[in-house]
Design a protein around this nucleic acid. Structure first.
Lengths: 363, 363
DNA sequence: CCACGAAGTT
DNA sequence: AACTTCGTGG
């Protein structure tokens, strides 16, 4: 027996909007902790993970774990019948094959009730390694959307490079090549767990390296690992039927800091960065609903890095992921070399995350 | 070596939007004066000329003349990656076959850089005669757009008549005929260089003539030539490979004022014109970015005429030209009988002009 | 209520 | 590629 009352149906609507093009059917796994969804996209290239903690509900009760197999197109239709600020109560009985949704407009006598058919979906719970990522970038969600949309005009894939200079998105297309560089708002790429002035001089060194020829000295920057908050401690290679070769994530990458696969050939034209503490205003989109891990989001670009990371991804998927920007002002990109990218949008008492395996070579 | 910094990428975007459907590839001819583009449309019927003076750039440097062969579709894509208010710096090396574009958002650490492949394009520089046009009309760009769009719903071509009454656009279609008359805002069609009351009575005469049977007396209105500001003093028949029979422009039309090929047979239905100084409000689009030759544009219709002019043009092209209205509040039409129409949109430190040969007979 | 952006259609 | 319409956001 599940009964979960959501203060705002809009949250669920946005979540569905974000994933319904990527996934057609998925289990909403409900337990006393909350509701989780985990699904490979239809072509089994990307992994979508949604977490809604029980604390995010106005009322939450789930006697025993139950997977609710949902056709996302159907749920989308049903949710269209709710206004964003309606409360939404989800109810599912233990033996029943339907999900009951009740919408109540505040200060109103209107009560809408829907019953949606459920389906049996094979549980393809993937293990997700608790990776310590070598680079963690927080940037405005709108900025990420813009960049991947722009670059998708030029080419199929994007190479993302994180170094002391900032984060760079590079796409090579037939008509043109594009490169977008985001520098951290406070001018500082945080190295390891330290994010203060003591690596100021190191940044200067690395900046020069990037301008010239930094490859030989990259490994000299080994520092403490950037810690991601922990969740599932399971392996990424689960029991899904195919596509898992895309997700051969290393569960631990200590001792691999010496990757050398970034290539910044001839685009260092005018990369002068005024360093130090001049906080630039990054036209902060204010939706007042973001909740980051660290603190309140201010609208800037924040980069914490352990070592240089360079990975290539399909832009089509990143564009798709960026639809989630309605859920949060900011997005976090977590990357380590040869490991799937994690794109995370956090909201009040939950998150939506996407994992996307990097392209290898020039595929 | 070219380096040109544009304050607003939006200008370039608008220019490309204006011509990209007409022309697929074109040379951006850069020299110390600025950047010029001149190209026949794909079917070699219309000629497009764009001028961006060096003074319009925030920074401009061009060591030696260099033609940059650009695929306009590619450039359009690359420009889509710029926001309108980004600065845009164009760079091209002397020997290189690519154009480098750098977009910088103001007050931001975002730097986007694109490299677009260039191509070799045979320079088809047409000579453009410095014609003294018999009729010069300035009207709101939005008005021109509206008229040609409306009439294009009815027929393929439009007959444009300029006489003392004003400027009339007539289209005969299968379903319906249309006729739009614009009278000068101040009520006066300027004759020659004079634009005052001394030809008031002449206007009245002509009005009656048009209502009845004016043909025999049209040539009686010879006056001083309306002067167009001068630019290239070269012949229009250049070295393009075909289609130039459309552009047998007379390079000088003194002594040809007696053309008699306008035909206003039986559509003088309701051409009552209240003369004198009743300024009609012509819904002036206000974008505050127009720079005309004479003075600041006030949103009205201004007509200067030397003799009656009647020409027929393909509406498809005029509709296409009218896309440039995003670049200027006003548009100038310059016409002489049997000479290509000149449609000119001026903007800060530059212009875009279209030349279109008239249709002959009832083709 | 108006405007802008996205999607579908011609 | 452009136009039109629908939906969403301000």
């Amino acid at each position: 027996m599940l009964e979960a009352k959501l203060q705002e149906a809009g949250l669920l609507k946005k979540l569905l909007d974000a994933i319904k093009e990527l996934v057609t059917d998925a289990n909403f796994d409900c337990n006393e902790e909350g509701i989780n969804l985990q699904a490979m996209d239809n072509s089994h290239v990307a992994l979508v993970v949604v977490k809604m903690e029980s604390t995010g509900f106005k009322k939450y009760r789930c006697d025993r774990p139950m997977p609710l197999g949902v056709n996302l197109a159907s749920l989308t239709k049903v949710l269209k019948c709710a206004k964003d600020d309606d409360t939404c109560t989800l109810k599912a009985g233990d033996g029943l094959d339907s999900l009951n949704l009740v919408y109540e407009a505040k200060n109103s006598d209107r009560i809408a009730e829907y019953d949606m058919k459920l389906m049996d979906i094979d549980a393809e719970q993937l293990g997700i390694p608790d990776t310590d990522y070598d680079a963690r970038i927080t940037l405005p969600a709108a900025e990420f959307t813009r960049i991947v949309k722009d670059l998708s005009l030029l080419g199929e894939s994007v190479r993302i490079e994180v170094n002391k200079e900032g984060i760079r998105f590079v796409s090579d297309g037939e008509a043109a090549n594009g490169s977008v560089l985001l520098k951290p708002t406070d001018g500082k790429v945080k190295i390891g767990d330290d994010n203060d002035d003591d690596e100021e001089e190191e940044k200067d060194d690395d900046e020069d390296e990037d301008e010239d020829s930094a490859k030989a000295k990259k490994k000299a920057k080994k520092q403490k690992k950037v810690k991601k908050e922990s969740n599932d401690d399971v392996e990424m290679n689960g029991d899904e039927e195919n596509g898992d070769e895309e997700f051969t994530a290393k569960s631990d990458d200590e001792g691999e800091e010496e990757k050398e696969d970034d290539d910044e050939e001839a685009e260092g034209s005018s990369k002068k960065r005024k360093k130090a503490s001049s906080s630039k205003s990054k036209k902060p989109a204010k939706k007042a609903k973001t909740k980051k891990d660290d603190d309140e989001y201010s609208g800037g670009v924040d980069i914490a890095m352990n070592q240089h990371v360079t990975l290539t991804f399909s832009l089509k998927y990143l564009v798709n992921f960026s639809k989630s920007s309605s859920l949060s002002d900011s997005v976090q990109l977590m990357m380590s070399n040869d490991v799937p990218l994690l794109v995370s949008y956090s909201f009040e008492s939950g998150y939506i995350r996407y994992y996307l395996a990097p392209k290898i070579g020039d595929e």
